[in-house]
Design a protein around this nucleic acid. Structure first.
Length: 812
DNA sequence: ATAGGGTTAG
């Protein structure tokens, strides 16, 4: 007897109690059916709640005493309709407590994220009133909230209290277990056993959850086990297939995912979205876009997940025009996303626009996001960091409401990779002080900072910490350590890293080759390069840059030439401007700048700044004035603010004693506002600039240093060190007998301390600096009489030494 | 009365 409408019910006179009870029950049933399936209380249509209240009022007015099942129904409906206070009032009024009503309330609390409230209610219900479903609701509540351990605790309580778990229990328990971060294969196996024993394995939802669980496990053999579960299933639904696709995508096995995808029928939007995001994660952006086109042409509905993945594909593949087209399409077709589901799209748009260099557009989109989440903040932070706008990045970082691990990492690596290594280290300490856990990549950045600063001891401490965190097999951390040790002059430790790293990738090979090159083992470096090729590792453009540098350090000009040719012919890598620049640098250092000229002529493009810089530096070494000045002019045209040009040019002038021209260059710098502190390339003594080069034998002071270096070389070789490069004498003040030398290796510096200059002036190592392997850092040697400020040049900045104090506070 | 899948920041 279906009731026709609420009005007929309300018109009934309260004569027949049974009839009335039936009508009430039927109406409640009708309301329940009208509720949407998902218990998303917030978005429920209020008409249902209004009708419910009207009905309830009528029940009360009729003076009819409803029995327990009607009351429970009401509790359930109020809970589902989002009126939890009413539900709770009714529930509390009824005695004894009813398991079904309690279940409804627990579910409603859990659905609105109020897990503690749900739990308190759960604990209040005495054992005799409980049933399996009651436990199930608490388990699934925790599972949905992502709290695996608490869900499993309830499961254990349930077994202890002698309740039999059913298929719903296991579905909940398995999905709860899947939220546990460090998931052991054993753990999955135990749960699997329990499922088999309970005889619920053939329930589709249980098997689905089991497959998803196995795929979330870190163990390598899981794909096979998940597949076995899948194969044993008698019946599968579309979720089974989807779970398989999603699982393989998780494991980055995109081919297997695709095979499952191709086999399944009735593919709906979720699978397509999973495939697209899978392709994006594997870097196969064109396949991702192809999927997008296909699903579009078949008429699968595009939702916010689709758009998010596709936009991410465009952003990562550099397909900015395509990305903007998709953005335009979203605006045009104007699907009405609620703010919550629009958020990921807006987030990825921030990334898209900052990646294509439109950081200001990205910022505007970011500003327009109403409820920003950590992803939004990190997206704009990363955008600023990547375009080098560190000040803006820092401003964002400081006002961010919730700084998670990633935010710290991005800000730290932003500092380090923009020449602010010390700031990076400081921020790292702050992060640790606040108890935030670093990623392995955070360590990589911080360790790189130590490499830049040459603070070996600090680097070693970080190495120890990193092992405590269990990151010793991380590739990014390992590569960073290798590079850091090499830059700090600890070549043996770098070698050790290379040997013990479980996975050596091309970055590791390149880093090790570079390390050997920097330490003067050019031959060994190119042997290692050949070894890498022998191991079947395909050298990339960075590998060739590295090996060219190694040849450069060791003066292996012909070998360098050979690698350059081999890169083009054997590996089909088109040399970039950077490769040409290294080649020219190599020729220049060997005094073959004329050949460098020919190389420039053979280039398929116009020479850019890096080429002219290499030419200029080659000319400085060997005093080709005309070409050097021409190169400097080109550089001035291209990048007038580039301080290095001025230094190099003035070095050329100084090499031939044209002090007026040196002064002219300095004045030019001042006029053009070039910010460069007068460093060790020149020092004013009695208003006169003196810059000498070791190669320039015309000056008697230089001759003396030459002799010194010769003797030093012999001594060093006896000690087992190999002086690898030409020494550049930065500064000689004949009056005061002060000498500043730049060299490559920390160990060489130790050797220097043992020496006396031929003239009798003593040389003292004020500080055994750990210098950077890029060989730009300088070690200062000076006579005991020296008392004025000394400036040591570092890779990225200058350090001022005065009265034994260094401006950065790190070295002394 | 209770359950299972997909998206974004490096």
């Amino acid at each position: 007897m279906p009731p026709s409408s609420l009005s007929t019910l309300l018109s009934l006179q309260p004569l027949d109690v049974h009839k009335l009870a039936n009508r009430f029950a039927a109406h409640l049933q009708l309301l329940a059916a009208a509720l949407p399936k998902a218990s998303a209380a917030a978005s429920l249509p209020s008409p249902i709640l209004l009708r419910l209240r009207a009905l309830h009022a009528h029940i009360l007015a009729s003076g009819f005493k409803p029995r327990a099942h009607i009351l429970n129904r009401l509790v359930d409906l109020y809970a589902k309709a989002g009126d939890l206070p009413s539900a709770r009032l009714l529930f509390d009024a009824a005695a004894p407590a009813d398991a079904a009503a309690a279940t409804s309330l627990v579910n409603a609390y859990a659905a609105t994220g109020r897990l503690p409230l749900a739990r308190r209610l759960f604990d209040c219900i005495p054992l005799p009133s409980r049933d399996t479903v009651f436990y199930n609701s608490m388990i699934s509540g925790y599972a949905r909230a992502g709290d695996g351990p608490l869900a499993l605790a309830i499961f254990r309580d349930m077994l202890r209290d002698d309740f039999r778990p059913d298929d719903y229990t296991f579905t909940g328990v398995l999905s709860a277990a899947a939220t546990i971060i460090v998931l052991e294969l054993d753990h999955c196996g135990q749960l699997h056993c329990a499922v088999v024993k309970s005889g619920t394995e053939q329930v589709i939802s249980v098997s689905n959850a089991l497959i998803a669980l196995y795929f979330k496990c870190d163990s390598p053999e899981i794909a096979v086990i998940a597949r076995e579960v899948f194969d044993r299933m008698v019946k599968r639904d579309e979720l089974t297939w989807t779970t398989m696709v999603v699982g393989y995508v998780r494991k980055r096995d995109i081919n297997e995912a695709r095979q499952v995808f191709d086999k399944m029928e009735g593919r709906f939007d979720v699978v397509w979205n999973a495939m697209i995001s899978g392709y994006v994660h594997c870097g196969l952006f064109s396949e991702a876009l192809e999927m997008f086109r296909r699903m579009n042409s078949i008429g699968i509905s595009l939702d916010e997940f689709t758009y998010t993945s596709v936009l991410s594909a465009c952003a990562n593949a550099g397909l900015f025009i395509h990305g903007k087209a998709v953005h335009a399409h979203i605006i045009r077709s104007g699907p009405d996303f609620n703010p919550e589901s629009a958020l990921p799209i807006e987030n990825v748009l921030v990334t898209l626009y900052s990646k294509c260099g439109k950081t200001n557009v990205a910022k505007r989109i970011f500003d327009d996001i109403k409820r920003k989440d950590p992803v939004s903040w990190n997206a704009i932070l990363t955008g600023y960091v990547n375009c080098g706008r560190i000040d803006d990045a820092l401003a964002i970082f400081q006002i961010m409401p919730h700084k998670n691990e990633l935010a710290w990492m991005v800000m730290i690596s932003g500092f380090v990779h923009n020449g602010l290594a010390e700031e990076g280290l400081k921020l790292f300490s702050r992060m640790r002080a606040e108890g935030t856990k670093p990623y392995d990549y955070t360590y990589a950045s911080t360790i790189a900072a130590c490499g830049e600063l040459g603070t070996l001891e600090h680097g070693r401490q970080l190495h120890a910490q990193l092992i405590q965190f269990g990151y010793e097999s991380s590739n990014s951390a390992g590569n960073a350590l290798l590079t850091m040790y090499a830059k700090c002059g600890a070549l043996e430790e770098a070698r050790l890293m290379f040997l013990v790293m479980p996975n050596v990738d091309s970055v590791s090979w390149n880093a090790m080759i570079a390390a050997l090159g920097h330490h003067g083992h050019g031959r060994e470096a190119i042997e290692l390069f050949d070894c890498m090729i022998g191991e079947g590792i395909f050298p990339d453009r960075i590998s060739f840059l590295t090996v060219l540098s190694a040849c450069n350090h060791a003066g292996l000009v012909d070998e360098g030439f050979r690698y350059f040719e081999s890169m083009k012919h054997d590996y089909g890598i088109i040399p970039g401007e950077d490769h040409y620049a290294r080649l020219i640098d190599l020729l220049g250092r060997a005094g073959r700048i004329g050949e460098g000229r020919d190389v420039i002529k053979s280039m398929p493009f116009e020479p850019g700044p890096s080429i002219w810089e290499a030419v200029l530096s080659g000319c400085r070494m060997h005093g080709d004035m005309d070409l050097g000045i021409y190169a400097a002019e080109q550089l001035f045209k291209m990048i007038p603010q580039h301080d290095g040009t001025y230094v190099l040019l003035s070095n050329i002038y100084a090499a031939v004693g044209w002090w007026e021209d040196v002064a002219r260059v300095r004045k030019l710098m001042k006029d053009r506002g070039v910010k460069k502190e007068p460093g060790c390339s020149w020092i004013e003594v009695a208003n006169k600039v003196h810059v000498f080069l070791v190669n320039d034998a015309r000056h008697p002071e230089v001759q003396e240093v030459y002799k010194f270096l010769e003797i030093l070389g012999v001594k060093m070789r006896k000690l087992g060190y190999v002086p690898d490069t030409k020494f550049v004498l930065h500064d000689v003040d004949p009056g005061k007998k002060e000498y500043a030398l730049s060299t490559h290796s920390e160990k060489l510096a130790v050797g220097y301390g043992l020496m006396k200059l031929p003239s009798g002036a003593t040389v003292r190592v004020l500080k055994n600096l750990r210098i950077c392997g890029d060989c730009h850092a300088a070690i200062m040697f000076m006579s005991k009489a020296a008392d004025r400020e000394i400036i040591v040049r570092d890779v990225k900045r200058f350090h001022h030494f005065n009265n034994g104090e260094c401006s950065c506070g790190n070295y002394w």
